[in-house]
Amino acid sequence: MFEAPLLAAAGLIIIGLFAVLFKTNLIKIAIGVTLIESGVNLFLITTGYRKGAVAPIYTLAPEGQQMVLPTPQALTLTAIVIGFATTALLLSLAVALYKHHGTLDARKIRRLRG
């Protein structure tokens, strides 16, 4: 059972990478980046998981009960906030590119090469 979240994280990262590598639609590339991010976040949370443990709130934990590790949850929260910022900026750049070129196809918007 412990491997299930890890497999899910790996699956999310692979699907995201597939989108970033093979999709030419800018929005789909942005979705791919978000999927990789979710996979990494899931992996981070999993590293702190302990079987049968409760939420890491010091004052609320029952006597003798094990808690999951709080640090990965703090890390994941930070990573989610950073991910929110990057996703918002990525999508706004995609919108700006659409306004300039009238298309979201990565092959048609490229002016910089060589």
């Binding site: 030419t24 590339i29 490229r110």
Partner: peptide
């Protein structure tokens, strides 16, 4: 090989 296509950039990276 300098195609300017973002998919190729990430392919090189991976």
């Amino acid at each position: 090989s300098h195609t300017g296509l973002i998919n190729d950039y990430t392919t090189w990276f991976l």
